[in-house]
Nucleic acid binder design. Structure first.
Lengths: 156, 156
DNA sequence: TTGTTACTTTGTAATCATTTCAGTTTTGAA
DNA sequence: TTCAAAACTGAAATGATTACAAAGTAACAA
């Protein structure tokens, strides 16, 4: 079962230590874009000797090797994503949850124009309020929470 | 001269104090996406009583009111941008410089699909190496600095 | 003008995510 | 088995950001 994770690490030029397998496996099974703390807290009970420093260094290594994505959509905490296929992210300004938002394709003509920029990674972040939070607001705070001046939709 | 800045603040429902005008004016004149520290260090000499806390709270207020943009493209520091028109950002993984990358238009069909997400802000971040850094590399480290596994271009 | 009230600014202290580092353990090749 | 390199650990340091209480300022009515 974990041999798949092991193979994945090796494929990405990461030596598969117990700790690295545990972190990578957690990310495969938890697509909630967890923070370092969440990952550490989840693994710690079953791995009492695990150090948070190791979680930090492992995530850094995995991101460097392209095995995972590092998201800065949340100003408070860096989040990690095992899905490295092209897709965008949505964060709810109410509850802070982060969702995948399916593959995004940027305008071909536009991308052509910036070929010379040597882009090796693209991040698309959407910020707004999820359905659940909107329901909880029920019009009362909604207005003040969404000032027009915040509207910056980039669709043509 | 500063009355324009003043009017801009009032337009965005921000009371124009001396400090707020100074911060906003700095952002208007410095389109380098400065960090809190850069803004504070630049203003401090001419405003010896200015507190860094004030710079923090002012930037937070301005962003909340939609007068400026808050960028999390740089993992180290939050950066601020006086230009609130739709545009994307590029950060150089070598020197850390941040450039504007002209307006980006996301695929219309795609956006239609996510109308229900109540998106009120969109951020598009590109990461790569600027020309200057590429020149300095001259092929030697270039290879190791750009592993294929990092390639995640989102253009179709 | 004076008094009152709310808002803003200031500086210090606290917080919290992240990094550094030195010592220890593990791994893997000879 | 031995040994050097790599990985892990935990404590301490760092550095950005926030909390907070006190001082200053603006608005405005009496």
């Amino acid at each position: 079962m974990l041999s798949k994770v092991k193979a994945y690490l090796i494929k990405h030029d990461v030596k598969p230590s117990i700790q690295r397998i545990a972190v990578m496996n957690y990310l495969f099974n938890n697509r909630t874009h967890p923070t370092v703390d969440e990952i550490f807290s989840a693994l710690s009970p079953n791995m009492p000797t695990l150090s948070k420093t190791t979680v930090y260094s492992t995530l850094k290594l995995l991101a460097e090797k392209g095995a995972i994505l590092q998201l800065t959509i949340d100003e408070k905490n860096v989040r990690y994503d095992a899905c490295i296929d092209p897709h965008a992210h949505f964060i709810c300004l109410g509850c802070g949850c982060v969702h995948d938002v399916a593959p995004i394709y940027l305008d071909k003509v536009h991308m052509e124009k910036y070929k010379n920029l040597n882009i090796i990674e693209t991040q698309v972040y959407y910020k707004g309020y999820c359905d659940e939070c909107l329901d909880n607001m029920e019009g009362k705070v909604k207005e003040s929470a969404e000032p027009d001046s915040h509207l910056k939709q980039l669709n043509s």
